[in-house]
Write a protein that binds this DNA or RNA. Structure first.
Lengths: 224, 224
DNA sequence: AGCCCTTTGTGAACCGATGCACAAAGTCAG
DNA sequence: CTGACTTTGTGCATCGGTTCACAAAGGGCT
């Protein structure tokens, strides 16, 4: 391996979004004791086509062996490192309604280098409760908690009306990565990354396609 | 406008994915009594740029007025119709853990033409409970419930290990739209639409970018 | 009615992502 | 050591989506 790989710079966004998928498939294989996997098989397990998978992996470097495939363990490590999962990320969840609880208990985080380091809520009724082994703290303590625990990623699982205000507060104390479940467009400085998950949007997209299948208003004959 | 609009056929997937966003912004405006909105303002409210918004809307038809903008009510109706939200969709949620409960209680569904028509779970402990006004039914009743309630969209909020089996069963009784929260790639006939939401994937993508900002392993100097 | 101003709708250039198809690189058997 | 076989990594064509920039369309003022 030469000293100047084109490795790091400019991994396409579309590729980044798929790496976690590959990682998941690889973890499954590692557990089942698979040592080596071809692009064909891994692609199938991840639900993509093999050319795409190979191109994606080629952006990280040349980690396969022609004629053989990829070493599962090694690839897990490389992808993890690329995604930054070899370090430990402290996550704070703001809002411990049903969604916040679901997230706090979600095993998929811990196993990927994410550590739920704090739970925060505004409701005095739940402040002080223990959820998933963590004490729920009051929203007034938000800034202090983030600093004290070294939180770098904040998850917003709160009502839309409160989201922008909380967002502003966490940005003000230096958080630059936010996962937003509230159905609002957050306005943030461009140095801050916001990813959003809107549960109802996914359903609406399904409804659109379902309507087509069922024969929409004009019952378009679908050639496909 | 002639009798053959290019309206229905071939709305780009990327556009479909944004329509719910516009719809949300428009609902907010309607509530605040705004009668008319320009592409510039609506785009800002939805968090996209105005050229994209205009092109998206142009795929549905010519619903704006030059020099004025779009009538909010009318546009709400047109987008709703296009997405199929003018009809009532019966949704079944399988799995009433924290996530399932969060979904069952989520107000964003009801207000968009979705009706949670059934809750199903395998745990005898929760079967029979009432959640969000609905009786939780046993997974053995899955097929019967789907038929009886006319369910056309199924949400899977169950552990990964159970997902494929439940998926096969709902597909077998004719469901063709599935929203999957389990971290597995479901295999389905190509007539079935599956959308997936993986909470940990979003965090991993954030971690990737966060790592860059913080200065990754090689502290690449980002020109941007 | 005529003119000016605003804003839409869209042609065209651009950009990134996808998929094909194959040469390069490696393994393994004999 | 050689040759057949497998599978990666990638150049290239293609496609879908984004953005620019402007002509066309309408409103409203005088």
């Amino acid at each position: 391996m030469s000293s100047s790989q084109p490795r790091d710079r400019g991994i396409p966004e579309a590729t980044v979004a798929r790496l976690p998928l590959y990682l998941r498939a690889l973890h499954g294989m590692a557990e089942r004791g698979v040592a080596t996997v071809s692009s064909e098989d891994l692609a199938a397990a991840a639900g993509v086509n093999s050319a795409k998978l190979r191109k994606d992996l080629s952006h990280l470097g040349s980690y396969g062996t022609r004629g053989v495939g990829y070493d599962v363990e090694y690839l897990v490590y490389q992808i993890s490192r690329e995604l930054g999962l070899t370090q430990d990320w402290a996550v704070a969840i703001v809002g411990v309604g049903n969604l916040g609880r679901a997230l706090a208990n979600y095993g998929g985080f811990v196993s990927r280098g994410f550590r739920v380091a704090a739970l925060v809520d505004a409701d005095p009724e739940v402040v002080g409760d223990t959820i998933a082994g963590l004490n729920v703290e009051h929203i007034d303590e938000l800034e202090a908690v983030i600093k004290r625990r070294g939180v770098s990623i904040v998850v917003l699982a709160i009502p839309a009306a409160a989201a922008q205000e909380v967002c502003d507060r966490v940005v003000a104390v230096g958080v630059t990565s936010i996962l937003n479940f509230a159905p609002v467009v957050l306005s943030v400085p461009e140095t801050v990354d916001v990813r959003k998950v809107d549960l109802s949007i996914e359903l609406q997209i399904l409804a659109f396609h379902e309507q087509r299948k069922a024969g929409g208003p004009l019952m378009a004959v679908d050639s496909q």
